[in-house]
Design a protein around this nucleic acid. Sequence first.
DNA 1: GTCTATAATGAGATAGAC
DNA 2: GTCTATCTCATTATAGAC
Lengths: 219, 219
Amino acid sequence: MIEKPKEKQRQRAPSQRSLATRERILDAAEQLFSEHGFDGASIRDIASKAGVQGALVNHHGGSKEDLFFTVVARRAGVLAEHRLAALEARKTEDEADLRGILSAFIGPFLELTTHSGPQWRAYGRLIAHVSADERWRPISEVCFDPTAQVFTSELSRVLPGASPRQIGAGFVFMVSAILSLSTSTWRIGDLSGSADTDDLMQTLLDYCEAGFRAIGSPG
Amino acid sequence: MIEKPKEKQRQRAPSQRSLATRERILDAAEQLFSEHGFDGASIRDIASKAGVQGALVNHHGGSKEDLFFTVVARRAGVLAEHRLAALEARKTEDEADLRGILSAFIGPFLELTTHSGPQWRAYGRLIAHVSADERWRPISEVCFDPTAQVFTSELSRVLPGASPRQIGAGFVFMVSAILSLSTSTWRIGDLSGSADTDDLMQTLLDYCEAGFRAIGSPG
DNA sequence: GTCTATAATGAGATAGAC
DNA sequence: GTCTATCTCATTATAGAC
């Protein structure tokens, strides 16, 4: 199950080749989990994509659920750091108003998932799976809730007229809209050029900022 | 595959008992597909929940993919009718402004999925699966795109300043926010009472209306 | 750490009796 | 239309040689 990160004490440091293999396996798992979901991606497919034997996947990743957890957690820290750093930067420049907070949350995610290569792009879709399936709630709690709490606190500060429940609802609406850019781009149209994605980010920011303002101001 | 609704010519009308069995199977499939997704729900589990033998599921539903299609399509017509009727009602009363259009789209969905029993509640989650997985795009095109086109046309009419792409983006944001109420209610809090859900619907409407206005107005 | 081989289970689908 | 029985295949996971 998903109990812990379970950091076994190792006898000695793993070799470089071992680490490289492990990374290949995690990359393959990231892509296939993001495309087909947990149940739709098989260990065999992952092993095949990584160019290794099936047994190696279990050796490096443990059970399938452990592997899924590992893949999600691998980039969660980086994403959280980018978001919190962006938030701090806004604060020190006195730009931590509503739009500044939303930018700090949305910007790093879109920057990473659209401009940082196919693995990060897959990771965006992967988060959508984690977020949609209550089965992965323990993963969410560990990987994403801490950051979410920081941002909802900030939102409550700049929107004193909104109840915690309204802030929570608005936050869920925003997250689902963000993730829809990773999963439903085909509904809006191809996003090949950077100009298009930046355009879409502005539209998303405008949408969410106005939405939050409507929630925060009295009826 | 998902080619067609494939209406085989029957020799004679099915018996009442047969129809009842078929409904039980579809109900069970609806619940399990909505909870665990297509790959996570097995034919065996569906048969067990419906209280029939496994072979009957294939007999009534065809292949697993056919069964999924059938379940999604079963209520799609009702949902579409409610939405289009609500839209027409607004138009004849000269209330087809932005908020009226959004209400006609959101209201029937929330009414059905929160106040019309567990099957409709499951159907809401089911649509979230269909919408998130590109694999079901053919189903979306048949079941939901026609209604979506009607509403995006209306939105373009009342928001002449927004490009089709912006309307499309806003529509995707809105749909993802609506569906998040079916999948992520545990993130916002329990929705036991009707008052709570009505409250949430107002919040959602405020959020989306403001968001669309921000998209539709220059700068 | 990596491989081959295989165990153990569960999946979707069908044949054929009733 | 319904059931029993079964086919065929894919799945996760592990045992053990190297």
